[in-house]
Amino acid sequence: MRFIHMNPIRHIRCEIFRVTQDEFAEILETSQATISRWEAGITNPSLRHLRRLRAEAIQRKLKWDDQLLFSAGGRAA
């Protein structure tokens, strides 16, 4: 069994929020291109975006743990 490691931001978008990059960008008040750069590891979200991300998850009553920002979910492939 091999594991696929996902970028933490992509993991949060896909597995926690379950939204597209466009929808995630709207939630975080940024652009889809910025989300793409975060997921590709080209740039990192600002502290303002991370705070908004956490607040949105809590407001939407999504399962949230700050550790999600530091490690990507490993999934069996």
Rank of each mutant, 00 (worst) to 15 (best):
M1A: 11
M6Q: 09
M6F: 12
N7Y: 07
P8Q: 06
P8W: 10
H11E: 10
H11I: 01
H11F: 15
I12M: 09
I12N: 07
C14I: 06
C14W: 02
C14N: 03
E15P: 05
F17Y: 00
F17C: 05
F17W: 10
F17K: 06
F17S: 08
F17I: 07
R18H: 15
V19R: 11
V19K: 12
T20Q: 11
T20H: 02
T20I: 11
E23M: 07
E23D: 06
F24M: 15
F24V: 08
A25F: 03
E26R: 15
I27Q: 02
I27N: 03
I27R: 05
T30G: 03
T30E: 01
T30W: 06
T30Q: 02
S31C: 08
Q32W: 14
Q32H: 13
T34E: 12
T34V: 15
I35L: 05
I35Y: 00
S36V: 05
R37S: 12
E39Q: 10
A40R: 14
G41A: 05
T43S: 09
T43E: 02
N44D: 12
P45S: 12
P45A: 04
S46E: 05
S46M: 06
R48V: 05
H49T: 10
L50K: 07
R51M: 13
R51K: 09
R51L: 06
R52L: 13
R52S: 06
L53D: 01
A55F: 03
A55V: 10
E56Y: 07
A57Q: 02
I58S: 00
I58L: 08
R60E: 07
R60F: 13
R60D: 10
R60M: 14
K61H: 08
K61V: 04
L62E: 00
L62G: 00
K63E: 15
K63W: 11
W64C: 05
D65W: 13
D65P: 12
D66K: 07
D66F: 04
Q67M: 13
Q67P: 03
Q67H: 11
L69P: 06
L69C: 11
S71R: 14
G73S: 08
G73F: 08
G74W: 09
R75W: 00
A76D: 01
A77Q: 02
